[in-house]
Design a protein around this nucleic acid. Structure first.
Length: 393
DNA sequence: TCTGGGGTCCTCCGCCAA
DNA sequence: TCTGTTGGCGGAGGACCC
C-alpha cells in the first residue's frame, strides 16, 4: 500500500521569505535590509511577507502593517507585485519539474515532489534536495528550504525545521522522537482554536498526543481527533496530487474607509461579477452558487448564498449577487469589506436543467465579444452601462 | 493591536422527500 | 393518512492554510 511506503520519497520545497527575496533580488540595494511586503503602511493592510532582517524586529506575516511600522520604523514597506512573483515562481517550478513529473503545487512558493523511481537518474533524496537548492540559488538567486521524508506531513515539517536555506531529512526511525517535543500547532490543521481545545484536554506537545491510546482523541474531538493522533504518530496517507480541479473563485476588498453607500456597494459587486465571470469564461467553467460576503465595521462577518442554474454570464451572476445584497444589507451598520465568490464550478453546464441556462446563452455571445475587446485593447475600453458612474465615464 | 485576500474543508442546522 | 426515520442538499459560519 502506497500509504505504508516508508522510503524517503517525498520532498517539500519552500522558498524562504519569497516576496521579500524577489524584491531584494530585483533591487540589490535592498539586500540585508528589513523589507516588508504587504498592504501599504497607514492603510488597513497586513504584512504578506517580510525579510529575515525584518523578522529580527518581531515583524511577522499577517501582522497589521501599522503594527509592523511601529515595531520596525526603518523597515522598507513595499506593495505586493503578484505578477512578478508569479513569473519567478514559474521559473522555480520549471527547475523542480526537471526531477519528477509528480509535483503538487501548494501555493506560489511551495510544492511537494514525489521522487519515487527517479533516484536511479538523480541519486539519493538528499542529492536531489541539494541539487534543487543549488540550482535555485545559482539560476534565480533565491534560497529554498527542502524537507525530505516518507510522507507529506513530515516532509513539510522537515522543510520548516531548518529554515531558512535548510535541508532536513526525517527518516522513519527518527520520526516519533523528532515530533515528540514539538508544540501541537506543528500538526497540519491545528491553529489557535484547536490548540486551545487540545490544551483544555491537557495536551500541549505532540508527544502528549503520541502517548494517548488509539481512539481517545477521536472520542473527544471526532474524526479530526483521529487525524491529529495519526499525524502525531507520523502517519499521513495523503498522496502527491499533481492536478486538482478548482472548486471556487472569489474576489473581495476591504475599503480604505467603512462604506454604507448602496450605490458604491452595487457597483463594487457588479465589477467583481464581471471580473470573475471573465475568469470563468477563460477557463471554460460555469458556476452554480453565488456567495456574497459582508464584513461590518465591528468585524462581524456574514455570508449569504444562492444556488443558480450553471452560468458564467455577467448579467446572470450580477443579478444573483445584487439580489443577495438587497436581501441582506439595508445600509447599516457600515461595511469594511465586501466580497463575491462563485462556487460549485463545473466544466460543462447541465443543458437539460433549468430555463436559466437559456438566459446564460443569450448573454454569452455579448460577454465573449467583450472579453475579446478587453483582451485586445485593455479592460478599461469597454464596460456595461451599469458599470459606469454618475460622472458618465 | 486591530485585524488582507484567495482559497479549502468541515460542521451544524433546517428543509424536504422517500 | 399520520408519524418517525433517514439521507441528501442548500445555506451559514468557522477554522485553517499560504
Amino acid at each position: 500500500m502506497a500509504g505504508d511506503n516508508r522510503s524517503l520519497h517525498i520532498i517539500h520545497c519552500d522558498l524562504d521569505a519569497f516576496f521579500a527575496a524577489v524584491e531584494q533580488n530585483d533591487n540589490p540595494e535592498l539586500k540585508g535590509k528589513p523589507v516588508i511586503v504587504g498592504g501599504s503602511a497607514g492603510s488597513r493592510g497586513v504584512v504578506s511577507t517580510c525579510s529575515y532582517e525584518a523578522r529580527k524586529f518581531g515583524v511577522r506575516s499577517a501582522m497589521p502593517t501599522a503594527r509592523a511600522r511601529r515595531l520596525c520604523p526603518q523597515g522598507i514597506f513595499l506593495p505586493v507585485r503578484m505578477h512578478r512573483y508569479l513569473e519567478v515562481s514559474r521559473q522555480v517550478f520549471a527547475i523542480l519539474s526537471d526531477y519528477t513529473p509528480l509535483i503538487e503545487p501548494l501555493s506560489i512558493d511551495e510544492a511537494f515532489l514525489d521522487i519515487s523511481g527517479t533516484q536511479k537518474l538523480f541519486g539519493s533524496p538528499e542529492d536531489i534536495g541539494r541539487e534543487i537548492k543549488q540550482r535555485v540559488k545559482s539560476e534565480l538567486g533565491l534560497t529554498i528550504s527542502v524537507g525530505i521524508s516518507y510522507n507529506k506531513f513530515l516532509a513539510k515539517l522537515a522543510s520548516d525545521l531548518e529554515k531558512p536555506d535548510g535541508l532536513c531529512v526525517i527518516p522513519h526511525e527518527k520520526a516519533l522522537e523528532m515530533l515528540r517535543p514539538l508544540p501541537v500547532t506543528k500538526l497540519w490543521g491545528v491553529g489557535e482554536k484547536t490548540r486551545q481545545a487540545l490544551e483544555h484536554l491537557g495536551l500541549t506537545t505532540i508527544g502528549d498526543i503520541q502517548d494517548l491510546p488509539p481512539g481517545w482523541l477521536m472520542e473527544r474531538m471526532g474524526p479530526s481527533g483521529q487525524h491529529y493522533w495519526e499525524l502525531a504518530r507520523g502517519i499521513d496517507r495523503r498522496q502527491v496530487i499533481t492536478h486538482e480541479e478548482r472548486k471556487s473563485i472569489g474576489r473581495e476588498t476591504t475599503f480604505p474607509d467603512d462604506v454604507d453607500d448602496m450605490l458604491l456597494l452595487q457597483r463594487t459587486i457588479n465589477a467583481f461579477a464581471a471580473e470573475l465571470c471573465r475568469k470563468l469564461r477563460r477557463e471554460k467553467l460555469y458556476c452554480s452558487t453565488v456567495t456574497l460576503k459582508l464584513r461590518y465595521n465591528s468585524f462581524k462577518t456574514v455570508s449569504r448564498s444562492k444556488t443558480i442554474a450553471p452560468s458564467h454570464a455577467d448579467m446572470v451572476i450580477d443579478e444573483a449577487a445584487q439580489e443577495l445584497l438587497r436581501m441582506s444589507y439595508s445600509g447599516s451598520p457600515p461595511l469594511r469589506l465586501i466580497g463575491l465568490s462563485l462556487g460549485k464550478l463545473s466544466a460543462v453546464p447541465d443543458w437539460e436543467q433549468g430555463d436559466l441556462f437559456a438566459e446564460t446563452s443569450k448573454y454569452e455571445k455579448l460577454d465573449m465579444l467583450m472579453d475579446q475587446i478587453c483582451q485586445r485593447f485593455g479592460s478599461q475600453v469597454i464596460r456595461r452601462g451599469n458599470q459606469l458612474n454618475h460622472r458618465g465615464d
